[in-house]
């Protein structure tokens, strides 16, 4: 049995070696001795070991991993310069991956992207492992692309911003103008970074494990408003206590109730009408913002856009 497994493993390694050697990207072996090539603090155990082993080990400084050969060497060089400019300006890592990966659900793409990012040395200075990864899956049956964010990049590139970016680059990607699409992507990311963390993400922070969490912020306007009303009412009650003198408007206390005598007392029903309306079942357009991180096999959080097929 063991020998069969070894043969299969060797076959996989050999086969992937051939595939990869066609691309311009260098890959390395993962071995137990060097913590399977994972430099980050992630705990490698029996649950995620196969994920680690199935993830290409690459040189994180290359930034562009074009397994599907969608860019020419020249384009790669230009984009590489632009990416480095983005990184040095923002301190957020940027990774481009093209791969031909068969899949049944979008989750497969997401898992691939998260593992690729997590099990290589991406993330600048490892603080929050902040970075953004653009994945192009050129799988012939259903081409797919999406943007994944890690660490503090989740704050800058909110779901809504990622969705807008995906819309911007859709036509270029769909038509195969990858250089233009990726160029637009880098420009969008740069300008989003320049405009700062969007309001929708201002109530969030990223914890040590890369998950978004909500931070408590004092809702000043409601607090001031409610306190103001309470103060006004209590002051009015106190002021009112000092005013004791009132003009009498009624004489009810002098009424002898036994003398109330009706000679006519009728409640006549005249007409009635019923109106109705159908309440709309949707509770208004929801923004669709997913302000929570998903967990990768490493146990670390990341966020993503909605993804596009095409």
């Amino acid at each position: 049995m063991k020998t069969i497994k070894k043969i299969i493993c060797l076959f996989i390694v050999f086969f992937t070696g051939i595939t990869i050697s066609n691309a311009s990207t260098q890959t390395f072996d993962r071995q137990q001795l060097n913590n399977y090539g994972v430099n980050k603090k992630w705990n490698i155990n029996s649950n995620n070991l196969s994920n680690v082993l199935n993830t290409y080990k690459v040189d994180a400084s290359e930034k562009i991993y074009d397994y599907s050969d969608i860019l020419t060497d020249e384009e790669e060089k230009e984009l590489y310069d632009k990416i480095n400019k983005f990184i040095s300006k923002t301190n957020i890592d940027m990774v481009l991956v093209s791969v031909d990966l068969p899949y049944y659900s979008d989750k497969t793409n997401e898992d691939f992207a998260a593992d690729f990012y997590d099990y290589n040395d991406f993330g600048i200075d490892f603080k929050n492992y902040s970075g953004v990864l653009l994945l192009r899956n050129t799988y012939e049956k259903d081409p797919y692309f999406n943007i994944y964010t890690f660490g503090d990049a989740q704050l800058y590139f909110s779901y809504n911003r990622l969705e807008r970016t995906l819309d911007y680059i859709y036509s270029d990607f769909h038509s195969g103008y990858y250089y233009d699409g990726i160029d637009t992507f880098i420009n969008r990311m740069t300008s989003y970074y320049n405009s700062g963390i969007p309001n929708e993400m201002k109530g969030y922070k990223v914890n040590e494990d890369g998950y978004l969490y909500k931070i408590y912020r004092v809702p000043f306007i409601p607090v001031i408003l409610i306190s103001g009303i309470i103060t006004l009412i209590s002051t009015l009650i106190m002021v009112h206590k000092n005013k004791m003198v009132f003009t009498a408007k009624k004489a009810t206390e002098y009424l002898d109730k036994s003398t109330i005598n009706y000679t006519n007392k009728q409640d006549n029903f005249i007409t009635s009408h019923t109106s109705s309306y159908v309440m709309s079942s949707s509770s208004g357009g929801s923004g669709g913002g997913s302000s929570h991180s998903s967990g990768g096999s490493s146990g670390v959080g990341h966020s993503s856009g909605g993804g596009r097929h095409g």
């Binding site: 005598n261 009706y262 007392k265 309306y277």
Partner: peptide
Amino acid sequence: WTVGNTHYTKTSIYKLYRAGSMEFYGV
């Protein structure tokens, strides 16, 4: 009242007639 997602409002109109007397002592 509400049935399903339809909201109903029924308005009934009445005419009230009152005739009579009452006595107040020592206003």
